[in-house]
Nucleic acid binder design. Sequence first.
DNA 1: ATGGTAGGAAGCCTA
Length: 258
Amino acid sequence: MLRVATWNVNSVKARLEHLCNWVKETSPDVVLLQEIKCEDHKFPAMEVEDLGYNILVHGQKAYNGVAILSKRPIEDPLIGLPGDDSDEQARYLEATISGVRIASIYLPNGNPVDTDKYPYKLAWMARLRDRARELLDLEETFVLAGDYNICPGDEDTYDPVGFAGDALCLPESRALFREILYMGVTEAYRAIHPKEIAYTYWDFQRGAWQKDDGLRIDHLLLSPPAADRLGNVGIDRTMRGKQRPSDHVPIWCELSED
DNA sequence: ATGGTAGGAAGCCTA
């Protein structure tokens, strides 16, 4: 069994103690990180390697940054999302682990929508769709997971009316997300928990955690051969209640082997 | 109530 977890840690250095404790407790085979907020050489590699993980990092100073941690060898890395050589933001990392193509994704937030951030988000999503199309055509077993900054449906936000004009919920954003799903891709959490109200993110402001004002924006997307192997899927909600938490919590899925 | 909080930067930006 291969367990793949993803977690937007909102600074890997600020969250190092939580990350190490959670990895020791849950021992995922693969951990996908987003918003590490540091350059490659500043990633706390020794602390993570001491837990028994290989590391692939695509970092950036202060903003963004993604990483892949894996107990098993990390092969054939692809650094950056194809489709725009001028894109300088570190938001995508892909590699093969035990024959599974696995990507760590930090999809642009897109707010405020009246700035160039929103068209950047939509263009980035179109590139992601195109990459998923390529991997499907190659008949790859894949898991594309991370912070998608998309509430797929109204049930995935505590306030659908208030968020109707937000880049996380606007029809164009949701339509691009659905375009990926309609190619035959399975969103792991909904596949296993069709009716649950479950969030992966709570804002630091306005007491969002205490009021359970959350959003479900972190997702694991599986190609058909990966979905055929899908077992349990879970959200480690308790991590949001710790001292100095990230605003996101880990979400994970299990893929059977043999 | 157009605020609030957190992180990393450096005298604001992003979320």
